[in-house]
Design a protein around this nucleic acid. Sequence first.
DNA 1: ACTTGATCTAGACCTCGCTCTAGATCGTAG
DNA 2: CTACGATCTAGAGCGAGGTCTAGATCAAGT
Lengths: 140, 140
Amino acid sequence: MTTDDAAARSLSIGEVAEQTGLSVHALRFYEREGLLVGPVRRSSGGRRRYTSFDVDWLLICVKLRASGMPIADLQRFAELVRQGPGNEAERLRLLDAHRLRVDAQIEALEECRSVIAWKVGVYAEHLADGEAGGLWDPTV
Amino acid sequence: MTTDDAAARSLSIGEVAEQTGLSVHALRFYEREGLLVGPVRRSSGGRRRYTSFDVDWLLICVKLRASGMPIADLQRFAELVRQGPGNEAERLRLLDAHRLRVDAQIEALEECRSVIAWKVGVYAEHLADGEAGGLWDPTV
DNA sequence: ACTTGATCTAGACCTCGCTCTAGATCGTAG
DNA sequence: CTACGATCTAGAGCGAGGTCTAGATCAAGT
């Protein structure tokens, strides 16, 4: 029953790739790097069978990676979770430190955005005016 | 006079590195890759002498890089400016496309941020409650 | 049984964006 | 003149984060 449930709910690497947006190559790579919390179960034939736990965790990994967390930090985080209860304070520090970095990144991007928007405005105006003066034009 | 002015205002690679935050290595690399609009002038002894034009351009490059624009796009942009007036529409397209990517990136980061904030909250609560149930804890 | 497609392992290989090295030269302070 | 630091060129090296290959195996359809 428990076995049947687990089998029924388990997903192949291809399905997990589809659900997470990671490639099957990347999934194997992440596993090799120890980014998964537990060892991935295998079918009788040796194929990986992922649980929905695994998928949830991978989805978080994807988010963290997308926001620039290095693989090494993800490794550390997985390791902490793997060690079980007792180190929640450290997990929190890790996540919170990353959150600060994300905040800084957002701020930096917003500044870039405004610089770009201004530059776009300059060009748009330039085009509307029909070639006035070419700002960074070495020929002017 | 014009020559004196130019000489007086010109900066060494080290000074430009300091002002832009790029390393001298990176400055030479950018030049080799054709990211600068014009050829960099040289002193009689062969040392690079940057103008304030160069610095302004480099500061924009830094912003664009910081917001994730690939070197290849920067190359293209520099090339357009180098070609002189007449291609402003394409420059605008390039910048605007990048602006859209930056917007998307900001949005993605904000979503990540909220996921992380939630997770941080979970751990904080967990710590406050004194070890309840460990979410992704394989041992639970 | 045969074909087809997904998966397996180990390890080589790739792109990006610099960074560093070696060995020579410049330029300025003593 | 001598030192010493900054700069020069060409090209090798590096770290991150995967991606791809080869050759074998598994599983399902016909």
